Simulated assay, not measured.
Amino acid sequence: MTKTHLITGAGSGIGLAIARRLADRGDRLVLLGRDEPRASELADLFPGAVGVAANLSEPAELAAALVDRVPDAIDTVIHGAGIVELGPVADLPVTAWVDQLTVNLIAAAELTRIALPAVRAARGQILFVNSGAGLTAHPSWSAYAASKHGLKALADALRGEEAANGIRVTTVYPGRTATPMQAEVHRQEGRDYDPAAFIDPESVATTVLAALDLPRDAQVPDVSVRPGPR
């Protein structure tokens, strides 16, 4: 049966790998982009996909941007978008905290709220692509890790709240993955970047699809994806 998925972060990295796999099997995609040109680019990547301009850095505007654009029933909301800015607490400007908490956490909460009636109608699933930083915070990762720890809290609370509505909630915690964000992290860390040293986004996508395709008698609340032996 064809399913409908609302996805953020589908333009690159893990989100792109997930969207491509879902599109290849004939599912319907609703893809959020930060503005109209980006939304059109995303729709063009996948024949039949719908691109919606919705800026995650402005969560208060998401409801208006999505009015009449959210299907009546959504099988899955996949939160794949995120931003990162590293730095010690002593040096991070307040904008680094606000930006990361806004995009990585608050926008995810608001988008979930908006989509919940449609997800309830489908007895669907909400999946958060979190990070190893959502479980452990390391030096210079304070703001990003705080946003991802908050995302874990959002998922855990939501899982209990929506169980009676038949909604499954899954959080995936990838380790360092070969994505444009990882390249940006290395730039900020001042280190050379070798994609071959990290998890392939397709491996994370495989984990995500396994959680989505699990029979209805079970759910995967949390799953970590770590680099394999080299």
Results as ranks from 00 to 15, higher is better:
106 I>V: 15
56 L>H: 03
96 A>K: 11
44 D>I: 06
19 A>K: 05
118 A>G: 12
139 P>M: 03
117 P>N: 06
65 A>G: 06
22 L>K: 01
14 I>D: 02
103 V>F: 04
54 A>I: 09
107 A>C: 11
120 R>Q: 14
71 P>E: 05
151 L>R: 05
94 V>T: 14
61 E>I: 11
134 G>F: 05
140 S>E: 13
52 V>W: 04
80 G>R: 09
100 Q>Y: 05
76 T>D: 12
40 S>Y: 11
151 L>V: 00
95 T>A: 15
105 L>R: 04
134 G>Y: 02
149 H>A: 01
102 T>W: 09
36 E>G: 06
23 A>H: 15
81 A>F: 08
20 R>N: 14
91 D>P: 02
35 D>T: 05
11 G>F: 02
102 T>N: 07
121 A>Q: 05
41 E>N: 12
54 A>G: 10
18 I>E: 07
66 L>T: 07
91 D>T: 14
105 L>Q: 11
137 A>W: 04
67 V>G: 13
107 A>M: 05
141 W>G: 11
153 A>Y: 01
95 T>K: 13
38 R>Y: 01
108 A>V: 14
92 L>S: 14
151 L>G: 00
31 L>I: 10
99 D>R: 13
34 R>Q: 13
132 G>P: 01
102 T>D: 09
129 V>A: 11
112 T>P: 03
139 P>Y: 04
107 A>S: 15
106 I>M: 14
149 H>K: 05
150 G>S: 06
87 G>S: 00
52 V>T: 05
87 G>T: 05
24 D>F: 05
